[in-house]
C-alpha cells in the first residue's frame, strides 16, 4: 500500500516543483504588468488576478482540462491531464505570487529608488541590485504560506482523475474499505509540508543578516 502511495507521490512532487519553479518568475512578470504605467495592461492584469483569486482552483482546473473539448470540440487524450494541471496551477499561483510581489515592491521606501537614481543606476540595475533583494526578504513569509497551500492543493488533481497521491489513497481506501490509506496520505502530506516549512525557514534566516527599517 505504501508503495502505491509513494508512486502517486511522484506526480504530487512533479506538480509541486514545476508549479513553484514556473510561477515564481511568472508571478514577478505579472506583478510588473499589474503596476504598469499603461492603464490597459494594468486593468487586464487586475481582472486576471481577480478571477484567479475569486474562483476555486478546482473549477479553473476543470476549465483548462475540459474547456478545449466543451468549447472548441478539441479532443484531448489522457496525456493532457498532467499538462492541464500544470497550466491551471501555474496560472493560478502566478496570480497569487504577483500580488505578494506587488505588496513587497510597494513597501520599499521611495528613498531607495531616489538614492539609486542619484548614484546613476539605471532602472533595471536599480531593480535587481537595490529593490529585489529587499523585496525577497519582505515577501518570504507570504511565499512560505502559499507554498504550503500548494502542497495541499496538488490533491485537487484528483478532480480530473490524474493519479497522484490523493487519488491513490482514495483508490486503495475503497478497495480495502480501510481508513489507513487516508491516514498514511495525511502523514506524507504533513512530512512534505514540514520539509517545505523547514526549507523556507532556512531561506528566511539566510536573508535575515540585515534589518529593514
Amino acid at each position: 500500500m505504501f508503495r502505491l502511495l509513494l508512486e502517486g507521490m511522484g506526480n504530487t512532487l512533479l506538480i509541486f516543483f514545476v508549479t513553484l519553479i514556473a510561477s515564481l518568475p511568472v508571478g514577478l512578470g505579472v506583478s510588473f504588468c499589474r503596476m504598469s504605467k499603461k492603464p490597459i495592461i494594468r486593468w487586464v492584469t487586475k481582472i486576471y488576478i481577480s478571477i484567479m483569486r475569486g474562483t476555486p482552483l478546482m473549477l479553473q482546473l476543470l476549465v483548462v482540462r475540459y474547456g478545449p473539448y466543451l468549447l472548441f470540440g478539441i479532443r484531448c487524450t489522457d496525456a493532457y491531464d498532467i499538462y492541464a494541471v500544470l497550466i491551471a496551477f501555474i496560472v493560478n499561483y502566478a496570480a497569487y505570487f504577483a500580488e505578494i510581489y506587488r505588496s513587497g515592491i510597494e513597501s520599499v521606501p521611495v528613498g531607495q529608488y531616489e538614492a539609486a537614481q542619484i548614484l546613476g543606476f539605471g532602472k533595471v540595475q536599480t531593480f535587481f541590485t537595490v529593490i529585489l533583494p529587499q523585496v525577497i526578504k519582505r515577501v518570504l513569509p507570504s511565499i512560505t504560506n502559499e507554498t504550503i497551500t500548494l502542497v495541499k492543493d496538488t490533491s485537487l488533481a484528483f478532480a480530473i482523475g490524474l493519479v497522484e497521491m490523493f487519488t491513490r489513497a482514495k483508490q486503495i481506501a475503497s478497495k480495502e474499505t480501510s481508513m489507513l490509506p487516508y491516514l498514511f496520505a495525511g502523514i506524507l502530506y504533513y512530512i512534505f509540508n514540514y520539509a517545505v516549512a523547514f526549507g523556507m525557514e532556512k531561506a528566511e534566516k539566510a536573508f535575515g543578516y540585515y534589518e529593514i527599517k
Partner: peptide
C-alpha cells in the same frame, strides 16, 4: 553624474555592507 546628494534620512541600502554601499556606484555604474 557630476553631482552628489546626501539625503536627510541617508537612504543607505540596508542589504549591503558599508563597503558595498559606498562602492556600488563606482563598480556597477
Amino acid at each position: 553624474s557630476g553631482f552628489g546628494l546626501v539625503f536627510q534620512n541617508h537612504n543607505l541600502f540596508p542589504h549591503m555592507t558599508v563597503m558595498k554601499n559606498i562602492t556600488a556606484a563606482p563598480i556597477s555604474v
